[in-house]
């Protein structure tokens, strides 16, 4: 009788441990945001290549999303793709190759936008990521980080909620080489915005650092 009770207690303990976080998820969700406004549209092919490298390093079970920064970015129309990699390595490898093709196809036919609604795009990405069950969430911004809002779609005052989200600014090209201070101030301003919204901020200048930052490998 005592043995049965002990066994039952062990099972119960295991169940409680499982409930208390013994079994956890290692998956992450990554949302790529491409800036297609102004001159940055020319850098989109390079940005998609960086995204490819990052996707190649993602693990099976990870989730990938992508959208673009346009005149009014907070919209489902701007979402390019959303896909979860299968949990087995071989199927995940196939899915990654399909993503490469999708990014390449997007880079080939991308069209320029008149305005740059960065906040709207971040809000859109944040909204999508909040729906995901993954614990680690990343927004990877491929942009010059210079926002320009249209009168019809001014999101400059919207409140961002980036709690639990890591925002990575990658391939931030310098639009005015004559004024480095302006570039640095602009980056600081964005960092302050992201941190104020509850997120964390990183700047990636080297392409090989992006996969390391996202996957931690």
């Amino acid at each position: 009788m005592m043995r049965h009770l002990a066994a039952a207690a062990c099972c119960l303990s295991l169940a409680i441990l499982a409930g208390c976080g013994l079994v956890t998820s290692t998956n992450r969700s990554v949302f790529f945001v491409f800036d297609v406004s102004g001159t940055y549209v020319e850098a989109v092919p390079d940005a998609t290549k960086m995204a490819n490298i990052t996707v190649a390093k993602l693990l099976p079970g990870d989730w990938v999303g992508a959208s673009q920064i346009s005149a009014c970015s907070f919209s489902e129309k701007e979402i390019i793709l959303q896909r979860q990699l299968p949990t087995t390595p071989s199927l995940a490898a196939e899915a990654k190759r399909e993503l490469f093709n999708e990014f390449s196809a997007y880079a080939a036919q991308v069209k320029s936008a008149k305005y740059t609604d960065i906040r709207g795009a971040i809000a859109q990405a944040s909204f999508e990521l909040k729906q995901r069950p993954e614990e680690e969430r990343f927004i990877v911004l491929f942009s010059d980080m210079l926002d320009d809002y249209s009168k019809s779609c001014d999101t400059s005052e919207i409140e961002l909620d980036l709690r639990g989200i890591h925002v990575v600014a990658a391939n931030v090209i310098k639009s005015d080489p004559a004024d480095p201070q302006k570039y640095l101030d602009m980056l600081k301003e964005w960092e302050a915005t992201v941190v104020a919204a509850g997120g964390t901020w990183s700047l990636v200048t080297s392409p090989d650092l992006l996969p390391k930052l996202v996957t931690g490998v």
Partner: peptide, 14 residues
């Protein structure tokens, strides 16, 4: 990983 899949940890172990 091909049999059990990836993406979960049990007691901190993949």
């Amino acid at each position: 990983a091909e049999i059990v899949g990836e993406g979960a940890r049990i007691g901190g172990i993949g």
